[in-house]
Design a binder for these strands. Structure first.
Lengths: 249, 249
DNA sequence: CGTTTTGTTGACTCCTCTCAAACTGAGTGG
DNA sequence: CCACTCAGTTTGAGAGGAGTCAACAAAACG
């Protein structure tokens, strides 16, 4: 089902079978999108929201000089712009990073859900607040960590999120982003991201090559990124990090 | 009433008289708090949320070395930790910056609201998403602006928020924070904030002295901070910025 | 008033950016 | 099958913005 990954393994908010069916029934349409397309422009009035089924999406803010700051990336299972339901317009753009499959839910359907199933409505609310918690982790990353820490934290976070979506085994995962994407996530230049990646590689902590991340020494990566997955509100953080991934040696 | 400033002048989400009464009735208790107290610790199970009536509160994340990054500040009218209702525990601490008055709403009352008045529930949801939109503006600030831009953007944002709360006339407002607070907001050191403040003063753009901000040249402050108030979802952005505040000359 | 916090300034360091030039690899087309 | 292209990666050299450390001044406070 299209909603299979939504809120999976989220502490105190996983969906009951009935709720999942209800949400599945609210899907209006499923679309496939090409890579690197803008799908929502800031300020546009919106009447539907987008559940990401497959692929990677980004949310970003541009400045006047063409610089861009990503404010979120989304992995399969994320209800990317559910916040457009209460907000009606967005303050940022949304774009695909890779080819993607999305399920569309009209806001009238969400009106019906919050009227008839307030507890499901509360779980939808919850999911938008996870995104806000991730924003806060990113604020900490940008405000208080150096380049190496920012990249390490991002890699740990993405590993944990993909792990709970079943798309990472905990030490290897596909990450179809460029170094420039990571620069726009971490508030760095692509040149400096490259230097950080080299250092991570030379220190045998982590390798990012041909869209594949291989974590060689999870313990040191977690330490470098000061990563603590609490803010992801995962049901059982144990399997993910850090205990599970300690270096064999 | 304690809820007078809540969602005031928020685009498409202001409360009806009836909704305001309903929310007012949900208030369990009103408390006064001293300055510089931690009021919520990350990870604690919560069964009530806090509407800020008077004073300034902060939300922040600490790192291992005692560095701190503020992820939000709150002004009167903000429902500071409403997100604790769906989330149940918070991923960060909440503390007073000044002496403060808060109104407490128990989560059972919120359960009743979302069951009986789903549209009021949707407005509560909305208010938590405004905080997320502010997080995103802060991400842009930290990721893509230099020190001067970050401080200018923060001052513009705070002016706009206080203006809509009736606590700024658009060019002068009380801001009872230290330069170290602003450093923890802007991801800088207090020394560097001091240098930026001196430059803003010497260029006759803005003066911050004895807890009072005076904007001398709003146009240049807005330009320095690349400030666009859209993300605050204010009903009528005109009175605030930038048109209203253009320098007389 | 003395004490403590906050603000101010200078000298020096260093992390990250900028600019520039290869290099690589996948695709494309002659 | 080989040039060619183009996006992405890699590396170097130099500049600069922000941090660090330290000292002192000025407020705020009890």
């Amino acid at each position: 089902m299209f909603t299979d990954r939504f809120l999976r393994y989220k502490r105190g908010a996983s969906l009951s079978a009935n709720e999942r069916l209800c949400l599945e029934g609210a899907i209006e349409e499923v679309r496939t999108l090409e890579a690197r397309q803008i799908i929502i422009r800031a300020g546009t009035a919106l009447h539907e929201s987008t559940l990401l089924v497959d692929g990677f999406l980004s949310r970003y803010i541009d400045d006047r000089n063409g610089l861009r700051q990503l404010v979120a990336i989304h992995v399969p299972g994320d209800f990317v712009d559910l916040h457009a339901y209460p907000l009606q317009t967005l303050d940022h753009d949304v774009a695909t990073m890779t080819a993607a499959t999305v399920a569309i839910v009209r806001h009238e359907q969400l009106d019906a859900i919050i009227e008839e199933q307030p507890q499901l409505g509360r779980k939808l609310w919850f999911s938008t607040l996870i995104d806000a918690a991730i924003h806060r982790a990113w604020l900490f990353r940008l405000g208080r960590m150096d380049a190496m820490g920012r990249v390490a934290h991002f890699l740990c976070e993405t590993n944990a999120r993909l792990f709970s979506a079943g798309l990472s085994d905990g030490r290897r995962f596909a990450l179809p982003l460029t170094q420039s994407d990571i620069a726009e996530i971490c508030g760095l230049t692509n040149v400096h991201v490259n230097r950080v990646m080299r250092q991570l590689r030379e220190e045998k902590v982590c390798i990012f090559r041909s869209s594949l991340v291989e974590i060689l020494d999870a313990k040191r990566l977690v330490a470098r990124g000061q990563f603590d997955p609490d803010y992801l509100y995962l049901e059982d953080p144990d399997p993910v990090l850090p205990s599970h991934l300690e270096h064999p040696s």
